[in-house]
C-alpha cells in the first residue's frame, strides 16, 4: 500500500518551471532514492512532502490524506508522523544536543522530564553519541551533527522519514554510520525517501530509485535493475555522461 503518493506535481519559482507533472508513490516500508542533477528540484519535492513548500498544481497524499493545501496548523499532525532530516542537520545552535533531542518530546508528548531524559540517553546511545548531551552543535563535527539531526528527527517514532542528502560531505566512517541507521529504521518498517548524489549510499539503502532531470522523472527502477541497461539514461547519469 502506498504511504506517499505524489500526483502531477508542478512547481515554479518565479518564471523558472522546476517540476512538470511529477508523479510517483512509495510503499509501506520501502526506501525510494531520488537522484538527479544539482538544481533539479529534488529537495523541493522532499520539502513539499511535509508541507514546507506548496506545489502550484498536483496532489500529495500521505497515508491517504491529501495535504498539499493544508494549513500550517493542520500540517502539525502530519509532521509528527513524517520526519525530515535536513542536509546540514539544522540543529538549534542556541540549544544543547540534549535540548535539541528533547524539543519534539516536550512539544508533542506528555512524558515527564525523567522519561524524556531516559529516552534521550537511549537515543544518543543508539546513534553513538553518548557523552555529548550537554554539548552545543557548534562543538560537534559535521558527521556528528548529522547524526544528532537524524536522532532528533526520528525521536517521536515516525512512520515516514525524508532524508535530504544525509551523507553529503561525510567521511566514509560517518557515511557508513548514517547508512546503518537508515537500514535499522527500514528494518522497523519505516518508509523513506532518500535524496542524494551519493550513489554508493543509494545502492546500500534504497529499494527503488527515480531519476529527476529537466523537471520530470526521466527514469525509474529497482536497485537490482540499475545496471541492466548500460545505455539507458539512468546508467548514463550514474556514470556522469548525462546530467542536469
Amino acid at each position: 500500500m502506498a504511504v506517499i503518493e505524489v500526483k502531477n506535481f508542478t512547481k515554479s519559482f518565479g518564471s523558472k518551471l522546476v517540476h512538470r507533472g511529477v508523479s510517483f508513490s512509495v510503499n509501506q516500508g520501502e526506501c525510494l532514492g531520488l537522484i538527479g542533477g544539482s538544481g533539479a528540484g529534488k529537495s523541493v519535492i522532499l520539502r513539499s512532502l511535509i508541507g514546507l513548500e506548496k506545489p502550484d498544481q498536483g496532489e500529495i497524499h500521505i497515508d491517504g490524506e491529501e495535504i498539499s493545501r493544508w494549513t500550517e496548523r493542520q500540517l502539525v499532525e502530519i509532521r509528527k508522523r513524517v520526519a525530515y532530516v535536513f542536509q546540514n542537520g539544522a540543529l538549534f545552535d542556541s540549544m544543547t544536543v540534549y535540548d535539541n533531542l528533547a524539543y519534539a518530546l516536550r512539544e508533542h508528548t506528555d512524558l515527564s522530564e525523567g522519561e524524556i531524559s531516559d529516552r534521550i540517553r537511549q537515543q544518543l546511545e543508539e546513534f553513538g553519541l553518548q557523552g555529548n548531551d550537554f554539548v552545543y552543535p557548534s562543538q560537534l563535527s559535521g558527521g556528528m551533527q548529522k547524526r544528532v539531526g537524524l536522532a532528533r528527527s526520528i525521536i517521536l517514532g515516525p512512520k515516514v522519514v525524508l532524508y535530504d542528502e544525509p551523507t553529503a560531505g561525510l567521511d566514509p566512517y560517518n557515511t557508513k554510520k548514517i547508512q546503518d541507521m537508515i537500514l535499522r529504521l527500514k528494518d522497523r518498517g519505516v518508509t523513506s525517501v532518500f535524496v542524494t548524489h551519493d550513489m554508493p549510499s543509494v545502492y546500500a539503502v534504497c529499494d527503488r530509485v527515480i531519476l529527476l532531470l529537466n523537471g520530470q522523472i526521466e527514469a525509474s527502477g529497482s536497485i537490482a535493475d540499475l545496471g541492466k541497461d548500460p545505455e539507458g539514461i539512468m546508467q548514463r547519469f550514474i556514470n556522469g555522461i548525462e546530467g542536469a
Partner: peptide, 14 residues
Amino acid sequence: VTQQIDAIRALGTS
C-alpha cells in the same frame, strides 16, 4: 539561512 526555521516547522511547531 541554516534551515533552523524550517526545522521548527518540520518538528510540528510554529
